[in-house]
Nucleic acid binder design. Structure first.
Lengths: 242, 242
DNA sequence: ACAATAGTGTCTGTGAGACAATATTAG
DNA sequence: CTAATATTGTCTCACAGACACTATTGT
């Protein structure tokens, strides 16, 4: 370390949340409208400062999840995404942000946050394409979150976190298609998913769709890591098809 | 956020490094002996406080890499691993640590750090098994770093970062075997590695081993992501063999 | 009946792993 | 020559993807 006379600088730490969900078969992220400077009035990720008390970073993330999105961190998938500390990222001074990724099943309607002026789900595509500007470096954080989710869908049962307590295989497929941005063959997907031990388990009864034969219902299984993994189709392979 | 009258708490931020290398065909991590309280005299990861000036977190990691291990961050693989902020992890007060993972090729001998009392490479196995105790929560950080490296070997060209400028395929195989802790078939590995476009490229001449036929030399290719990936053998498949 | 979706069966090419065979060096 | 390692060749089995086909509902 360094000599005792030197005193290290103190910095402010915020926790920001990338909360993803599926709405109308496309990926959405929860954004709030900032009620204070800086970036007043602009869209930003929900988040806030780390509390004084003996609050761990993960606890702070769960607290913000509760305060700003009214979601229960204990029930949801919540994992650390990364830490962002570029010197000039916050005009207030030396602020670094620890970002967390949360996955929520489809929710009824725009969640009204307690803190933020207004909260609402926005299409991830609009954010990534820059059609919707975000405060700070939050666009980059969203991009990292989506990329993380895409990768984890392959090797973990994360996709079930987008669904409700029970779901059909077609619904599960829509999750993969929306997050990966690809189309999958329903028949191959059907067998493939069921072949992974512990991924999903039957929930007994049936459920009717608006049209066609009713589908079986399933719930998430005990397994969190998928053996074998569900690999997403290689875009390079598509080109070969000519 | 919160009302303006409330003032968020300031915390101290350290940057810690998990520097991995290969020595005698097994994975080693760089550790220093702490010269100050707390944990004086115990082993710990190299690291230090974030500087006052406009120093980004990644820059701080590169600086520590230079100061404590005399390695050039621009040449090495250096990526953020995660942020650790349990309230009681540091007796000095509210300190959170941003951990970085660095991969270094086999180096001549114990690197003498400038700051730390003593520095040396220790087998990762000793740390993970608890035979060698570490300060703070550094054992967990090492475990996370090794796990990250294992996964990245599958999908990225990270393995070449363990090697020198040129290397044989057998040496590359030793990297995979040491990090994954498995044995691989040299013949299948040989073809598999060469089939991945851009992973490795020939370096022309030859080089003799102590015994046997001399092996071709290769250098790292331009590709960083492997298509197709090198999947590590599924341990469940081994049991089937009976 | 038809449309629409759920679920099953079958074929085929590719690729991974097992392992035989050949090449090239040192001693 | 033999030992040791590098490199190439070949076989086989499993599996992913394409897609025909059957099942079960609403209208």
């Amino acid at each position: 370390m360094v000599d005792e006379s030197w005193s290290p600088p103190e910095v402010l730490v915020t926790v920001d949340l990338v909360i993803l969900t599926l709405r109308e078969a496309s990926l959405h992220v929860l954004l709030v409208e900032r009620g204070v400077e800086p970036y007043l009035g602009e869209r930003a990720l929900p988040g806030g400062f780390l509390n004084n008390a003996g609050e761990g970073i993960a606890e702070a993330a769960a607290r913000e999840l509760r305060e700003e999105a009214d979601l229960d961190g204990a029930q949801l998938h919540l994992e650390q995404l990364g830490t962002y500390g570029k010197p000039a990222r916050d005009p207030r001074g030396r602020v670094i942000s620890v970002a967390y990724l949360a996955i929520a099943p489809g929710l009824p309607e725009p969640v009204a946050g307690t803190d933020a002026a207004g909260a609402g789900w926005e299409p991830v595509e609009d954010v990534l394409a820059g059609r919707l500007g975000l405060a700070f470096d939050h666009r980059q954080i969203v991009a990292d979150g989506v990329e993380r989710a895409r990768g984890k869908l392959e090797h973990t049962a994360l996709a079930t976190a987008f669904c409700g307590a029970t779901f059909t295989i077609a619904e599960l497929q829509q999750v993969y298609e929306a997050v990966w941005g690809v189309e999958l063959d329903p028949r191959n997907f059907y067998r493939k998913v069921q072949k992974v031990p512990g991924f999903i388990e039957s929930a007994g009864d049936e459920r009717k769709a608006t049209k066609g034969r009713p589908a079986r219902l399933f719930r998430a299984g005990a397994t969190t890591v998928l053996h074998p993994p569900l690999v997403r189709p290689d875009p390079a392979t598509e080109e070969e098809r000519q």
